[in-house]
Amino acid sequence: MPLKLKPIYIFIIALLFTTRAHAQQTSFVSDINYPFLEKLIATAKKNYPEVKSRQSQVNAAKAVYNSAVFSWLDGLTASYIYSPQTSINISQPTIFKGYQISLSLNLGHLFSRPGVIRQTKEIYKAAEFQQAEYMLSLEAQVKRYYFSYLAAQAELRLRANAVIDAESAVKQLKYAFQKGETTFQIYNEQLTTLYSQNAFKVQAELSTFTAKTNLEELLGTKLEDVK
């Protein structure tokens, strides 16, 4: 006559999984720390190399614009001529003696300045807009990676608890099997479940470390170093 699992053990195992399942019905939303998230965003904006590159582009565009604004006098040329008081130039007689200053103005340069200034100003504004757009994109990316990290942690907790449940069930069935109160098939099936839960836990650990690495890439520092 085949051995069967006693009702008392069926009840214990069912109660164990039911209790644990209810305990695991939680969400990572409660783990979100918004003040800490703001610190993460500020850290990324401070450390991430692309942010510094964008700022350099803005600075360069601003320098070109300022140079164009102050280039109005580039078309104005000043020179001087010195005619000694005692000398007489027969070929080119002059009325004035001593130092004479002459000014020349390049009209083409003068008329082209407004257009050049407008162009450099628009380039400067475009660099600022691109920087602002990137800041918004970086902020959103930090949030996504932070939420992914919290979700991965929650998943890892669930998988770790599932392993504990499976281990407890295996111990219970092993004891019952040794006493002849259950079959080897039932005991072996629970062992297979335990192996599967351990595999799921390993995958959850990998997902957690991957999410943490992605977040730290944006931060430019270890997550633990953000205070």
Rank of each mutant, 00 (worst) to 15 (best):
R113Y: 02
K125Q: 12
L136S: 10
G115M: 00
L136F: 07
S102N: 07
Q131I: 06
Y134F: 14
T120S: 14
F70K: 13
Q92G: 02
Y80N: 12
P93L: 03
G98D: 04
A68G: 01
S71Q: 05
K121H: 13
Q100I: 15
Q100M: 06
I81D: 14
I95W: 03
L107K: 01
V69Y: 01
Q131D: 08
L76P: 03
F70R: 09
N66W: 09
L105Q: 06
P84M: 09
W72Y: 15
I88W: 04
T120N: 12
G108N: 15
W72S: 10
L107V: 14
F129C: 01
L73A: 14
A140G: 12
Y82F: 08
M135D: 13
I90E: 11
Q100Y: 05
Q119M: 10
S104W: 04
Y80G: 11
E133V: 05
N66F: 10
S104C: 05
I88H: 07
G115A: 09
N89A: 10
L73I: 12
K125T: 12
Q100F: 04
I95D: 04
K121G: 12
Q141D: 15
Q100R: 09
Y80I: 06
R118Q: 14
Q85L: 15
Q141L: 11
Q85A: 15
L103H: 00
T77N: 10
F111Y: 14
L76A: 11
F96G: 04
V64Q: 03
V64T: 08
M135L: 15
K121Y: 08
F111V: 12
Y82N: 10
S91Y: 10
K97S: 03
I81K: 14
P114C: 00
V142C: 05
G98C: 02
W72K: 07
Q100G: 08
D74K: 14
H109L: 08
I123E: 15
S79K: 03
S91W: 06
S91P: 13
Q131P: 05
P114H: 00
S91H: 08
Y65N: 04
L105E: 02
Y134K: 03
P93W: 01
P93G: 01
S102H: 06
A140Y: 04
Y82R: 04
T77Q: 09
Y65C: 01
I117H: 00
Q85H: 14
Q141M: 07
L110C: 03
F70I: 07
V116T: 14
A68E: 11
W72M: 11
S137N: 15
Y124S: 12
A126P: 04
Y99A: 08
Y65I: 02
P114N: 00
S137I: 09
A78N: 05
I90Q: 12
F111L: 14
Y82T: 07
P93M: 09
L105P: 01
S112M: 08
L73T: 09
F96N: 12
L107W: 07
K125C: 02
R113C: 01
